[in-house]
Design a protein around this nucleic acid. Structure first.
Ligand code: FES
Ligand code: FES
Lengths: 145, 145
DNA sequence: AGAAAAAAATATTCTTATATCTTTTTTATG
DNA sequence: CATAAAAAAGATATAAGAATATTTTTTTCT
């Protein structure tokens, strides 16, 4: 459903947001090690997120990554859009094209009506869920980032 | 969300089910042409479905494919399982692993509670939707297979 | 039996996602 | 200023999915 890149990015952001406020930058090696992700691959992903002004990155000694935006203002949708794009939310479930609810000039497919309902719920979830929410959840329960 | 293979398979089955009862076998070239899909690639997919006893295939002159099961007894889930497997229904949304609701020994991820609800609806849709339903929908409206 | 039609099986190519490696740029610090 | 630390950028490798091409087997029809 989501690409590896996207899932890694989401986890890295949750990880960064869950660190104590006092902590400044965190190096890519540290992040990759704690989340058990391939270091150079994760670096590429964080670079994309930095370009989108979601993360802050600084080079040089003591450099690393930190959140640029307030975790209350980062939604799952923001991250997915940055990394995978929004095709998963706009494409038809059985055709290689835009769903008729996005492009009104298109005919619907036979699964459209039922699927749109589920997809709407999915979009709501991604749009409304902030990183802040997720960190709070993770801290309140026995949760695995 | 679904692979090309899987979507092609679903469309081919809807197509076969929508043909008049009187029609016997339909050749792969005909199917691929009408659905505008790559012929040899579609052949591979239909072979898989034939192995799963969803389709019937016969070689030789006038050979081709037809439904083996009654369209009321083929669900979307049957096709997805055959072609993509059920990982999309059992994997965690942000980890490369089984979701905690499938493997109870695992900890949940922070998105789990909300995501499971949506996923449950999705599974219900795939499990309950038969090819017969889809063909009926397609015939009642201006629909694109 | 022999020829032709059609799917099955096999092998090969193409593309993209995933992952790694190397070099360059930036920056803090002695 | 020189050095080292760290990310950025670019190039390369690997694997999987997607697609095509080729050969083999099966079946029908003459
Ligand atoms: S047209 Fe197929 S899901 Fe909307
Ligand atoms: S554990 Fe992540 S979705 Fe269930």
């Amino acid at each position: 459903m989501l690409s590896n890149s996207c899932r890694y990015g989401i986890r890295a952001i949750i990880y960064l947001a869950s660190l104590p406020q006092t902590k400044g930058k965190t190096g890519i090696k540290q992040i990759a090690k704690d989340l058990e992700l391939p270091t150079p691959f994760l670096a590429k992903i964080l670079q994309q997120l930095a370009k989108q002004k979601i993360l802050n990155s600084t080079k040089g000694p003591h450099g690393g990554f930190s959140l640029l935006k307030d975790s209350k203002n980062i939604t799952l949708l923001d991250i997915v859009k940055t990394i995978d794009g929004e095709e998963i939310f706009t494409n038809c479930i059985i055709h290689n094209e835009t769903c008729s609810s996005v492009d009104r000039s298109k005919k619907s497919c036979p699964v459209h009506d039922d699927f749109s309902r589920v997809r709407t719920d999915l979009i709501k979830l991604f749009r409304n869920k902030t990183i802040y929410d997720l960190v709070r959840t993770a801290k309140s329960e026995e949760i695995f980032i």
